[in-house]
Computed example of a mutant assay.
Amino acid sequence: MAVHDGPDPMNAAAIDDAAQALLSAWDAAREQATPRLSSAQLNALLAVERAEGVNLGGLAAELHMLLSSASRLCDRLVASGLVERAPGRADRREIALYLTPSSRALLAELRRVRRLALAVTLERMSGSGRAALLRGLSEFASAAADSNGATASARTA
């Protein structure tokens, strides 16, 4: 009898298939709420939201892109009025990035549309199914955060 060290690959495949439905709902909400933004621009806004005052190098690292690519992306966001550049608090020569009221409103609308779409689907599920989904996704998010923290620690070591 074989001993398994990890999850059943069939479970991973089933979760991958089910996650596609969640991602499709998410993408539809993104397209409805933020049709003028590319995925890269939206990811940049979310990164700046998570780390207000991040510098360009930090943004590039967060988005896993070259500094020059992040700079061009940031230029487009500044030109659209979605990001502001300001001198850094610790080092005035460094440029910090901040969301504008316009981008905050845009992200709030995205979340509103996304949550409404999710609520419609969740209503079709049983109460026990919703509870199990929430429990499982919460544990998944925690495990992913632990994994991402370990990955980030390994990169900086």
Rank of each mutant, 00 (worst) to 15 (best):
M1I: 12
M1W: 09
V3P: 01
P9N: 05
N11L: 15
A13Y: 07
A13H: 07
D16A: 15
D17M: 13
D17E: 12
A18H: 09
A18M: 10
A19F: 11
L23P: 00
A25D: 13
A25R: 13
D27S: 08
D27K: 12
A28P: 01
A28L: 11
A29T: 02
E31V: 15
A33M: 04
A33D: 03
T34A: 15
P35W: 06
R36S: 13
R36Y: 09
S38P: 01
S39C: 05
N43H: 11
V48K: 01
E49V: 01
R50C: 03
E52M: 04
A61L: 14
A61P: 02
M65D: 02
S69A: 14
S69K: 06
R72N: 08
D75S: 14
R76Q: 13
A79V: 03
A79R: 09
V83S: 01
E84V: 06
A86D: 08
R89K: 13
A90G: 15
A90Q: 14
D91N: 12
D91W: 06
R92D: 05
R93K: 13
E94K: 10
E94L: 11
I95N: 01
A96W: 04
A96L: 02
L99E: 04
L99N: 02
S102P: 03
S103A: 07
R104M: 06
R104T: 07
L106Y: 05
A108H: 04
A108G: 06
L110S: 00
R114N: 05
R114Q: 11
R115F: 13
L116F: 08
A117F: 03
V120S: 08
V120C: 04
V120E: 15
R130S: 04
A132V: 11
A132L: 12
L133M: 13
L137I: 11
S138I: 05
E139V: 12
A143I: 05
D146F: 06
G149I: 08
A150G: 08
A154F: 09
